[in-house]
Design a protein around this nucleic acid. Structure first.
Lengths: 170, 170
DNA sequence: GCAGGGGCTTCACCGAGGCGAAACAAGCGT
DNA sequence: ACGCTTGTTTCGCCTCGGTGAAGCCCCTGC
């Protein structure tokens, strides 16, 4: 993810272009000049002179926003079984709601099948295949949100954002 | 729209609270201290000492963002049963007016069938299917405005703007 | 290398219940 | 008298949770 550096007001035209292109940008504003203001989260400005650290800090945030428009916000699960992520949502039936609770508590970490079974069926698991089936169903329901449940063989499962894998290990 | 001013690192706890509450905030960072970084567009920081103009500039941007985050054109319902949205309007009969009231109070959140029943029929619900029927009728009336009532099975209903919903994979 | 087996995935199916919607029958105000 | 609103019945679909069974993949023992 790249962030454009734009001098203001010297490069006014370029700022307009970069804005139109929807690129992230940091505007450098010398002393005594009013900064250009916009509500666009992909734009920030900094007053010169500034330390390299401060410039880097603002650049990092802009990079995060540029990247994270899609990635990296954490899904939210409410008490009504609604799972929200990036403006979209899906509703989860009771069992899957409970399973999702544990997976989110340990987001991006492995959750054992045992822990999942206990969470999904506090009164004891009905059959030995039930968990697997519900994992499949949960996977399908999560797909539209870009969430993926990975299998960690003989260890358990792990919830994360679905990345576009460079190559499937085939 | 209000923006919280938070001193850093003195008011670290308060920053956490304000973040959790989703309020817009400007973090004041003294010289020589690393600013707290987040991709959240509702947070910004400024290096002290700073001019009043620079502070005001950052406040204005945050106010704009806070306003934009909330104002995402919400439908308006008046006491005469007129529901307006985006220049258009429809009129709602008494029962549907009351139902719509609760749905709007909890816009985009789940409202239980029970809560709807109590709102629509304060003196007790006449039959057990009445609510379903009125939901259907309300749906038809809302359609021209682009509003949609989603079913959240065994939990209730939810009112939102009719976007193209990610369908469940068949 | 090959066969066996455990772990996991997926499908097809069933019963129960939640929900949708059409059709019908009043009631009410204008 | 007419149209709009409200309540009721009824039929049928879809979802949800659970079960059995088939198949795949990887590891392991021989």
């Amino acid at each position: 993810m790249h962030v454009e550096l734009v001098r203001w007001p010297a490069e006014e035209e370029r700022l307009a272009e970069v804005r139109a292109a929807g690129l992230a940008r940091l505007v450098l504003v010398p002393e005594g000049v009013a900064p250009p203001l916009t509500a666009d989260p992909l734009e920030d400005w900094i007053r010169l002179p500034a330390t390299d650290d401060d410039v880097r800090a603002r650049l990092r945030v802009l990079e995060d926003r540029a990247r994270g428009a899609v990635e990296d916000d954490r899904p939210e699960l409410d008490e009504n079984g609604l799972l929200r992520l990036g403006g979209q949502w899906v509703s989860l039936p009771p069992v899957e709601h409970r399973l999702m609770g544990v997976l989110l508590d340990r987001y991006r970490a492995v959750v054992s099948r045992d822990a999942l079974a206990r969470a999904g069926w506090p009164d004891g698991i009905p059959g030995r295949n039930v968990l697997d089936v519900h994992i499949v169903r949960l996977r399908r329901r999560l797909a539209p949100l870009g969430l993926v449940i990975r299998t960690v063989r003989s260890r358990g499962y792990l919830l994360e954002q679905g990345r576009v894998e460079a190559a499937t290990g085939s």
